[in-house]
Design a protein around this nucleic acid. Structure first.
Lengths: 136, 136
DNA sequence: ATGTAAATCGTAATCATTCTTAATTAGAAA
DNA sequence: TTTCTAATTAAGAATGATTACGATTTACAT
């Protein structure tokens, strides 16, 4: 996902263009990893010392709901990153050191199609955790 | 996992037998679902009105570290349940209504063995969420 | 029965997250 | 360009889960 595409989505849904939103998005475009709300606020406050948690969390929630960012829970904290470019369903290897991801193109649900009759399947989560080659 | 086995593990590791520990374990043995610390405290306080969060969380952490309980994060809260009997590696379907689980005997990592060379794989998570037949 | 380390209680502190109210701002309309 | 209005933000209080701490109690080895 890039800036232009993100703004297209935001504009389509009637959201206004603010410098803070833009800088949050730029940060995610340039820093391709999972970040916490706290991480984000720390970086943003270098340019906007008065930025509050509310702004961070409100915009993160907006971006996630529009599919601009994706979210996961790592060691008890919510982490956010720019949604991948690839529009096909996939999963992630996540480096627990640097937060960078590697896309895993296969989905285990493909092989479980009929394995759970009578169950209503609403969602699933498949993530692999470890160290990427650079951090190992 | 049953009470006897759980106490074997606790004793092996030098933990003392207390009535509260026993009642927490009994509760998990009899209520085969994912519960939050809050759920647990609410039930326990019927018999031990003075039980504190500290006791709940401390024992939950102990039980998880010894492999007596297993833990997962559901909609922003930690949930705990008795560790499954089956000692072979498996995953879970989790009913988001009643918290009950169904074991999924297959593991997607089996098919990804060599797909991530140069990566150090420490852990992985595969869970399926939805409604069980009873709740559907 | 006694001593000691472990366990628990009661409560305060902490951390992430959400909420509230008032002030500011982007973008539409005049 | 100026005005208007709804969206956005700031500042900080409130919430809810979790952890920490000093004082007290308890399990159990001796």
């Amino acid at each position: 996902m890039n800036l232009v595409k993100a703004w297209d989505i935001l504009k389509e849904n009637g959201y206004k263009e603010t410098s803070k939103r833009n800088q949050i998005l730029e940060l995610f475009v340039n820093d391709d990893r999972y970040l916490t709300a706290r991480d984000l606020l720390d970086v943003m406050q270098k340019d906007y010392p008065s930025m509050s948690y509310d702004t961070v969390y409100r915009n993160l929630a907006t971006f996630v709901s529009l599919g601009i960012l994706e979210e996961t829970e790592l060691s008890g904290e919510r982490h956010f990153r720019m949604h991948c470019e690839s529009d096909s369903h996939h999963h992630h290897f996540i480096c627990m050191d640097c937060g960078k991801i590697k896309e895993i193109p296969v989905c285990p649900m493909d092989m479980l199609g009929a394995a759970l009759p009578a169950y209503e399947i609403d969602n699933h989560k498949f993530e692999i955790y470890g160290k990427c080659p650079a951090c190992k």
